[in-house]
Amino acid sequence: MSVLSKLGKIDYRWLYITSLILTAIPLVYPIGLSVTLSQPVKDYYSAIQDLPEGSVIAVSFGGSASLLDEQEAQFLATWKTIFSLGHKVLFYSTTEDGPMILQDHLGDKVKPEDYGYTYGEDYVELGFSPLGEPGEASFAANIRGVYAADKYGTPLDDLPMMVDINDYSGIDLLMFQYTACTSIEWVVRQWSVPYQTKVIATTLGCCGPMAAPYYPSQIEGFLSGSGAGTELEVLSGNPGPGAAMSDSKSIGILPQLVFIAFGNIAYFANKYMKKEDDQ
């Protein structure tokens, strides 16, 4: 067996160990690489920025604690952007983890009160409800049908911000945050199509390509993965966890690319040698 064909049979554990070591190094010695902005991210940012001050943004929050490493940069940069522009925000969680993540973010990492916000007047948290697609339809048609009270148990009519918000007509922009790739269809079918509500989305890296067919006609912009979160941090001038992760991703991916190259070299070497033998 030639050296080249051996490249296709390297023990996987070399890939594991080199990836682990290379990913860890930039955490100790950061490099500080820059990022380039992409169009869906710019459009996502513009959709928030172009709203008149005081517009109402509904955040359908489907964040997952297990996947927070991938999405936290998107979330934090988004909250900072919204709060700095003075929009009103209506948070509702569609996953059980949602309220815990929001509690950590709004209670500690990006406090709305630091931007002059008052709970009940400028932002409201409705807590968790297992909405799914019918629930999204119900929420768009009648918010009080699925949320009688906010997460603290206060009836919605007792919250000043909610007095005039009953359904989709009180929402200027829907921000859909999800982790199951096909869930993007829910908002297209239940918000974008029936009410022509403006929609933007944030999701995992692997779901971006599946959201792309709906962009920009039905979804005005989207963030997919922590890379897009980092881009939003740069674009909005709010550095956060995304920037800290960039260097490790840059170096940690190298063994994978080298191994894919090895696999292909070995394949073509074998093919060439087989051809030689046949002749």
């Binding site: 990836s19 682990l20 990913t23 860890a24 955490l27 996947l67 927070l68 490493d69 991938e70 995992l204 890296g205 692997c206 779901c207 971006g208 390509p209 599946m210 997919s224 993965g225 922590s226 890379g227 992760m245 490790s248 991703k249 940690g252 991916i253 994978q256």
Partner: peptide
């Protein structure tokens, strides 16, 4: 899709480290 998934999982690893 695969690429998005690979980089996502790598981000998870970075997060745990």
């Amino acid at each position: 899709n695969w690429s998005g998934e690979l980089v996502w999982y790598l981000t998870q690893l970075v997060g745990r480290l």
